[in-house]
Write a protein that binds this DNA or RNA. Structure first.
Lengths: 148, 148
DNA sequence: CTTGACCATGACATTATGTCAAGGTTGATG
DNA sequence: CATCAACCTTGACATAATGTCATGGTCAAG
């Protein structure tokens, strides 16, 4: 199976397939005489693994660790479970951080009449000194979708 | 007030102050004879505005729009409120997406014994084909903190 | 043989921020 | 005055994950 087919089969773009190969997440596949990559079924499975893990919000670093465990037939399932549980907590923390931002924002919104007049407590509130959060779990809220 | 003092007063790093200037979020300040930046109080307030807005998860693009409204003494507060409310919804959607990931992950975790044996439904589940989500609000879960 | 659909590689862009380097300034101390 | 530390300046490079574009080779059908 070549890279285009593997891409369709797994939903991972060809660009990303090559990227995963470049950073060592995917083993370099055999090449056919024309230079085309040729993926065995196990590699396709591996790509799916990566795709699913990303969909669950694992970073490529975490995925790398999971793949090592996947490759290791002797690993204890407790190791995997520990990583998964930690990640689940991470998700919960991030979600809570977003919710906290939302609450704070809605508090500001609450004071704003939202009519044609120019007075706006939202803008005033933003310009005021205020307790800044710890900046540790909040780095994911404002990232635009790079949809250009 | 020079850039170091402004940085301390607002919590925005000097690096970022200059960046905001480079991308047009901050007006180029006057320079003293030695070339040092000299910020008037209004600029310090503006930096605080940016910092607070970022803490609430606004992207620099959104902040740019908010700053325009801030500069415009005649704008209607409804404009501001609309942006804020839309962003609050965005936060809610992202938070919900993280929660959904977490639920799915915990489902996988649930089937895993987590003991010394190697069988692991988590890894097996990750390798299986599964319905991939829409990839539209989920791009914020796995970003590591760049703490290197 | 040509056209179109693939594939390959490499380079550049994105977002927000850090870090490092090399050099000018300033103020204080010996 | 010499010097040293603490500042400021600019510019360059790096991060994570992904898209996009350019340039060129390959293959299959007409």
């Amino acid at each position: 199976m070549n890279s285009g087919q593997a891409s369709k089969a797994t939903g991972v773009s060809q660009r990303m397939i090559r990227h995963y190969e470049a950073i060592g997440l995917m083993p370099p596949p055999d090449r056919r005489d024309n230079g085309y990559r040729d993926y065995p079924p196990r590699s396709v499975e591996r790509l799916r693994f990566i795709a699913n893990a990303r969909d669950l919000g694992f970073s490529l670093d975490e995925i790398s660790a999971l793949l090592e465990l996947w490759d290791d037939r002797a690993r204890a399932s407790s190791e995997v479970k520990a990583i998964a549980l930690e990640h689940a907590e991470d998700l919960a923390r991030k979600s809570a951080a977003l919710e906290a931002m939302r609450r704070t924002l809605l508090e500001l919104v609450d004071g704003c009449s939202g009519d044609a007049r120019p007075d706006c407590p939202i803008l005033e509130g933003l310009a005021e000194p205020r307790k800044r959060p710890e900046r540790d779990l909040t780095e994911c809220a404002g990232k635009p979708k790079a949809e250009t």
